[in-house]
Design a protein around this nucleic acid. Structure first.
Lengths: 223, 223, 223, 223
DNA sequence: TATGAATGAGGTTTCATTCAT
DNA sequence: AATGAATGAAACCTCATTCAT
């Protein structure tokens, strides 16, 4: 899956990177508040700290901004996630931690994930495809973890249910953002983590009934 | 929760109803295909079978169209749902059937639900509020069913998990539409129903281990 | 050679005709004064007597304006030309009058012809092609007249020179407009007519040396 | 007629000359292909082999590029023309050769002449004036030749027709470029030369009926 | 002298909404 | 009650030009 090439009139790759980071940051905030369609390119430029002309030195069209946002958010999610997962854990504890970390990252990057989630459908053609593929690749990560547990005989779950379970995990993460108007009134992220994972694990039919996932203890680092 | 009043220059209430039904039908198709922002009022008028001038005799603004759509879809979902639920069932079988019926209705009204789901965020103020309240009222329906089962001692689930479980059911329905690009490639609606319900029920920790929900047998009635 | 279809959002064909006439009239004046590229669509709208929005109800793009101009000008040229030619004349007198009438029409529609002549190259694809074809069809008209004289043994001119002579006549007409900055200082239209035709006829090697074309006596009928 | 001064930030006159030659060469190609208005200064800079910043070290505005082009083309046309004219010829043969050489040069510098011809109207004020004067000076060259022949009693042509004949010669040259879409399909440059000159000469009413201009034998030198 | 990132005025086009018929 | 032509604010995007390095 190749990245879509976003055209730039500027040659300095380093500068492109910096400026695009500014753009993405500004766009996330604006798209969150006013939606992609409700945000003008001028606003993005201004919020990015430069003129409309300069904005268009780094993108080819408004849609490119959305694409840059989605691309950056996915990368950031995956990156933070991988940093959070303890490589030493194995078995159910690992599975537990993988899911928990995912929820944490989503909580951490709430605005970003929400934007990506709600606006990505405005992308077209190649860009949309790329984003959907990335989405899919995340599902596959969960699939690997679950299959690993199945192989070790730790959980029992029908083959045909595996994929569905992964969708459920993924969507449980998104839910935390797109239903935050109600769900974050009812739960904090720790409770949400514990309860969702508890329900998921019961769905997995864990054989070792002594397994007790440690309660979450999230020290949300910064942001 | 009072309905938002959509202004009309026409007196005849009967006519208003008819025309708005035409509008909603046309809008659902268009919003699905091109999104709310990608659809023009002209297109809605044309697809509705009348002129742009006439359209504005029955609505006050473009947003009203979206509101009418959301309102109508919720009503239709609830109505079809209630018609599908067998009033004679009780206990786990009833819970099972309530969820199953919900999934069926969502499948039946796929385009409508997807539009409502993806575009309702474009609503503002009063209208948005109304739609969110309606959404909430659906969650409450599930809650009632679950509490009823708990009271009867049929399922065990922590008080704090109840609400979350209901969100999960609701979102599992939406998922069928907003992830249809991938999930409907992997499952048909029957399999999706059975597997999602199986996972949910395991999450409910059903005491009566002999309970075996009948496999779905959906005879999709028209549409 | 089919006309290019210029899109309009308005249904009333009569109105389309009227409005487009207004547009063409305004555009000719503006394009003459400031050139096609130097004229904004806003200016065209304003000079046409309506808003920019209304302008775009009658055209699809700025280029359409230029196309409408070229199309209208050609039609008007041909129409006026045909009206001017005396159907009763024959032989050299007819040829003489055909050319003279052409020059007169060009003089009469000076601004229009100049615009068409100088700006048509800004057209693209289908539209450009159509205009070039129309141009060609005018050359063919002269060709017919000349061949008719040749057949009657009135003039002697090599076969291979015929087409060239027609180009020369056509361009002699255009010249009157695109070199008007100098040529109209030196000659008035009557003198220009007479002298150009004299030179052309000498080029035709007329056999009947008694032929004396009557001096021009142009009573320019308004405009 | 003084040249318009094109400002430059660079002192070294030698360098200015070199760079401007690069600019003109690049601009001719671009203006031909995309027109003056359709070409950006960036493109000119790039095609010239340097940056946009450098371009503006050697010109004051985009219009200056067009002016430089027109100026250079006229100079080149005149220079090549003079080189081609055989100083030893006299009388009708000289006149013939002067015209023939002019056509040859136009053919040789087709792209350049076309650009100058089609785009010079975009010049303004002083620059436009200068170009028109240069144009005029070419007409005067022909005039001198013709008057010389008249004085020698070689051709008969009314005083008032002289100027017109010169315009016709000049335009016959331009025609070869601006009608090339059709005329170069019908004739090659040799035939065009011969036939146009034949027609012109007949228009001149040559007295010495034994004069037979040698058929063209153009050995197109390079390009 | 050369570079190229930055600027912002201004261009074309769209579209929700109005109102005379 | 129905029509659809008219409106104009505002959107996206371009590009000639400048200036710090």
């Amino acid at each position: 899956m190749k990245k879509k090439k976003v055209p730039s009139l500027v040659k300095d790759e380093r500068l492109i990177k910096t400026r695009r980071e500014q753009i993405v940051k500004a766009a996330v905030e604006l798209f969150n508040r006013k939606g992609y369609h409700g945000t003008t390119t001028r606003e993005v430029a201004q919020a990015s700290g430069f003129s409309i002309g300069t904005l268009y030195e780094y993108i080819g069209s408004k849609e490119d901004i959305l694409y840059l946002v989605c691309d950056a958010v996915y990368d950031e999610v995956v990156e933070k996630w991988e940093r959070l997962v303890d490589k030493n854990l194995v078995g159910l504890e690992r599975l537990h931690q993988v899911i928990q970390s995912y929820f944490r990252v989503v909580d951490d990057l709430q605005d970003e994930v929400l934007v990506m989630y709600q606006e990505s459908k405005a992308l077209s053609g190649e860009a949309l495809n790329y984003v959907l593929q990335k989405e899919l690749s995340m599902k596959v990560m969960f699939e690997k973890e679950i299959r690993s547990c199945i192989e070790k005989g730790l959980i029992t779950i029908d083959e045909e249910e595996i994929s569905l379970a992964c969708h459920n995990i993924l969507v449980a993460g998104h839910m935390w953002t797109f239903r935050r108007w109600i769900i974050q009134k009812e739960y904090d992220i720790e409770a949400y983590c514990d309860l969702q994972i508890a329900q998921l694990f019961r769905g997995f039919q864990i054989k070792d009934h002594s397994f007790q996932p440690a309660r979450s203890n999230i020290n949300s680092e910064g942001r």
